[in-house]
Design a protein around this nucleic acid. Structure first.
Length: 858
RNA sequence: GCCGGAGUGGCGGAAUGGCAGACGCAGGGGACUUAAAAUCCUCUGUCCGCAAGGGCGUGCGGGUUCGAGUCCCGCCUCCGGCACCA
């Protein structure tokens, strides 16, 4: 049982206009939730008559219970969905479950249960919690990624990628988390640690499945330029992650062997300044270069040290650059000069060509390295009006300048030398312009149980064979032992592994790795458009109707991984002709975190507030209202129990206001009153009726702009609060005037309608109590009446030299001269001017008059 | 180091270059009450002043402007992301 706050709960039920002490959310909220569900208030279908709006929030992992971050995320989305709906859009607002993943498996291991039922129970519980929040989802479209009916299509999509050559297997050094006992994608490694469990990641050479996202690097990057609906910081993060770098591959010849050693550089204009090359310890030439060297053993030791050190130490801030001379030399393709080839720990094999040219005069790192090992330094670009001396320079010169020591390019500005030298290299075949990306292919295979099996069959005769469509889904077997051993648990399940080749019918083995859960979440927004469809992943015509998602909302922690994978997937789907858009999310909003005591709420820190407790004590509307009001949506929100109380008090205040206005006025209010409300604009100047109407339409204008244009929910709520305050102070006076009932009826209607997107339950209850029979959530969003807001006179500030000295009331269209005259009548203004003479005046209509006065110089 | 974002009362936060501090919280005072809670009204940036009134105030220093929290230049601090990427 919940702990119900004091006082008698509710008064009479059934629409009677009985004044109640208190808004009884315990009764009202479930009542309307059931009612809405029953009448299918939030069900949607395609409708060519109305503009569509696809409102989506990132679906949750069913970890067991919803947390405040969910409440905030989904409350923001719900306000937007409701606002759009009331404005006549056909709104798709679905919810589902990102249900594969490690926690289910780990929980199952810990409790000896099975991940499927653990997940099922969590979904059931969290679904109940979300329903209790009153979110306007079309639950008929609910999807869960662990449902065979869903992952059938995840597997099918994998097969499509495989057939296009976008899914492939290769052996590579990959990131391995020893604690999770599985490989990780590059994106899942944060500071050398597993992003999930913070265990230091180790590198293992393994054969794994990859998606060729690098093929889409350029498109993923370019499209960002045409995505004004995304926050700049997210686009920047993606650009950095993609890491496009334009430059040249230059071929050096290994002296005496005729072998090519290619380096990548963005500064080919400094090539005459190369005094050494450095290659990665893993570089294929290492073996040939060091074999037979007098210090071969020492070199081998160094190489294996670097390879071992590499990953963990490399990410440390202050790892020292170390290197060793291989004994080999390379020929500079520009000058023909021979330079030593070194091995260095700071050169990465998996970026560029795994080899770099050392130009210490013009690169900070190279200079540090050269000074450390006594390598020569040669300046080839001089700064304007200065001379560089390679032997003595202490700081690399990295700017543009004029070429020197550069053969026939001497004297050229480096900006001109670059294209000239590029042409030279290209024509001589010693170099070519290239683009390299930091982005790596996406590693999608996992050695864990709780995921969609990769639908591939290995046949000795036919090789890798995709599972035919008719055999999908490849269902996860039950009763598997899945202790994390570092190998897929499915490996031990012979009924699963052993199968027949779909091509030749011969004996074959199934792939036992499962698919990264990020794959499942890369297309769920498409599945929502065709819930439950059995013969396709989604119906193209429906997807084309709904896509793209018009407003996507989620945490910024998904700025790179999820948001880039989903973009990649959508592009691939488009190339396959399965969907008509290139980009899935038109507008993106990244909401801030929920903090308690300055730190992100988290179970491990123990600083959480349970949504259930708040809902039990104050109701869902209060919980929603607080998370929306306490902070602008994009910024972090500091939890405050007092702030929650404030929102609760506000809703009670609304409740009392509406009841007091309705009490005993059955005859004069409602329809009759509303008709005359339209003519109440005639109300006498300064009357309470006029002020009520102004307050109503001013609030409506503000809330409309804040919701429709600015996504500024906290200020919209503030405007409603202000409006309620105004009604409290005006109502008695207004009721005493002619037309007061009508004006107040209109005012209360507008209040309830404006409140509906934020606090849907109390709004619905009040809406019915003031005499409406349809749902307030079917009510069209009202339009404010500009005529009500027009005023004849206005109070403006009078400034003297920028300082406010007085306020005067003038007509709205007052001339500057007339305003000045009125201002001069003020003793305070004339005192402020004193003996100075007025140089000029500036009138900002409706705001202020500034009088510029200067004392004559003596 | 590089790239973002942010610095405003006791606190969360408002302010298309135009009256800084809306709204909420916390706090003071009052009404109602036998009393308390709840509610309603009211005050609340800071300094000087009995008051009227005035001075000072949006991280710091400059600048543009009749007018700057807002625009420009140079810093400081905090938060987030990337970080040997050649």
């Amino acid at each position: 049982m919940r702990d119900v706050p004091t006082k008698v709960c509710c008064g009479a039920r059934g629409g009677g206009l009985v004044m109640r002490d208190r808004y009884c959310f315990e009764e009202v909220e479930p009542k309307w939730q059931e009612q809405w569900e029953e009448e299918g208030l939030y069900r949607v279908g395609e409708d060519s008559e109305r503009p569509k709006f696809y409102q989506l929030e990132m679906f949750p992992y069913p970890s067991g219970r919803i947390h405040m971050g969910h409440v905030r995320n989904y409350s923001i989305g719900d306000v937007m969905a409701r606002y759009r709906r009331m404005n006549g859009w056909n709104v798709l607002h679905p919810m589902g479950w990102d249900a594969f993943g490690l926690p289910a498996e780990n929980a199952a291991i810990k409790h000896g249960a099975d991940p499927a039922s653990w997940t099922r129970e969590n979904i059931a519980h969290m679904g109940k919690q979300l329903r209790g929040m009153g979110y306007s989802y079309d639950w008929a479209r609910e999807a869960a990624t662990n449902d065979p009916a869903y992952y059938k299509w995840t597997q099918w999509l994998f097969v499509q990628l495989f057939k296009k050559g976008l899914a492939y297997r290769k052996s590579q050094k990959v990131n391995w988390c020893p604690s999770c006992a599985t490989v990780l994608a590059n994106e899942q490694v944060v500071n050398g640690e597993c992003e999930r469990c913070d265990t230091p990641v180790i590198r293992r050479q393994l054969e794994q499945w990859f998606f060729r996202i690098t093929d889409y690097a350029e498109r993923l990057l370019r499209n960002l330029d045409a995505m004004p609906g995304w926050p700049e910081h997210v686009k920047t993060m993606q650009r950095n992650w993609i890491g496009r770098s334009e430059g040249m591959d230059l071929d050096f010849e290994v002296a005496g062997t005729g072998e090519k050693l290619t380096v990548f550089t963005t500064r080919h204009d400094t090539v005459f300044g190369v005094t050494y090359l450095v290659i990665a310890a893993e570089h294929p030439l290492v073996e040939r270069l060091i074999a037979g060297q007098p210090n071969e053993d020492e070199l081998r030791q160094f190489v294996s040290d670097v390879i071992a050190q590499d990953d963990i130490a490399r990410t440390a801030d202050d790892t020292e650059k170390v290197g060793m001379f291989t004994g080999g030399y390379a020929v500079n393709p520009a000058s023909g000069e021979q330079v030593p080839i070194w091995i260095g720990n700071y050169v990465l094999m998996d970026y560029g060509t795994g080899a770099v040219m050392g130009v210490p005069a013009h690169d900070h790192r190279d200079l540090e390295f050269a000074r450390k090992y006594g390598l020569s330094v040669r300046a080839v670009i001089s700064p304007p009006g200065a001379k560089l001396d390679g032997d003595t320079m202490e700081c690399a010169y990295v700017e543009d300048g004029v070429q020197m020591n550069s053969g026939r390019f001497d004297g050229m500005p480096s900006g001109e030398a670059r294209p000239a030298m590029a042409r030279y290299f290209e024509s001589s075949g010693k170099g070519r312009p290239t683009v390299h990306y930091k982005l790596r292919d996406w590693l999608i295979s996992r050695q864990r149980f709780w995921g969609a099996p990769i639908p591939i069959i290995y046949c000795e005769r036919c090789g890798q064979v995709p599972v035919p469509d008719v055999d999908l889904p490849v269902v996860l077997p039950t009763g598997v032992k899945f202790m994390p051993t570092g190998q897929s648990p499915l490996l031990g399940c012979s009924e699963f592994v052993n199968t027949k080749c779909p091509v030749c019918g011969g004996p074959a083995r199934r792939e036992t790795d499962t698919i990264d859960t990020f794959v499942c979440s890369s297309w769920y927004f498409l599945r929502y458009t065709s819930p439950g469809s059995d013969d396709c992943a989604w119906d193209k015509s429906k997807a084309d109707y709904w896509m793209p998602v018009d407003q996507y909302i989620g945490g910024v922690e998904h700025a790179i991984m999820h948001l880039m994978y989903a973009r990649f997937f959508t592009m691939v789907m488009r190339d396959l002709g399965l969907v008509g858009v290139d980009e899935p999310f038109k507008n993106l909003l990244t909401q801030g975190m929920v903090l308690l005591g300055g730190h992100k709420m988290s179970k491990s820190k123990g600083n959480t507030i349970e949504p259930d407790e708040i809902v039990a004590k104050y109701g869902a509307d209060t919980a929603r209202l607080f998370t929306l009001f306490a902070s602008p949506v994009e910024r972090d929100l500091e939890w405050s129990d007092e702030g929650v109380e404030g929102c609760w008090r506000f809703l009670q205040r609304v409740w009392r206001l509406v009841h007091r206005c309705v009490e005993g006025r059955e005859s004069s209010r409602l329809a009759e009153g509303r008709v005359t409300a339209a003519t109440a604009g005639m109300a006498a100047d300064g009357s309470a009726v006029q002020r009520v109407r102004r307050a109503a339409h001013a609030a409506l204008k503000k809330v409309t702009e804040d919701l429709g244009v600015r996504n500024s929910l906290n200020t919209a709520i503030a405007a409603i609060m202000e409006y309620v305050n105004a009604l409290y102070s005006l109502k008695d006076q207004a009721f005493a005037e002619d037309g007061g009932d009508a004006a107040m009826a209109e005012a209360i209607d507008l209040l309830v309608v404006m409140l509906a997107p934020f606090a849907p339950h109390i709004a619905e209850e009040l809406w019915h109590e003031v005499g409406h029979s349809e749902s307030v959530h079917r009510e069209p969003w009202p339009k404010y009446d500009p005529d009500v807001l027009t005023v004849e006179s206005v109070e403006i500030a009078v400034q003297v030299n920028g300082k406010v000295r007085d306020r005067i009331t003038v007509s709205v269209d007052v001339s500057e001269d007339a305003a000045f005259e009125a201002a001069m009548a003020s003793a305070r203004v004339s005192a402020a001017i004193g003996s100075a003479s007025v140089k000029k005046t500036i009138l900002v209509p409706g705001k202020l008059l500034n009088i510029v006065a200067r004392r004559e110089s003596p």
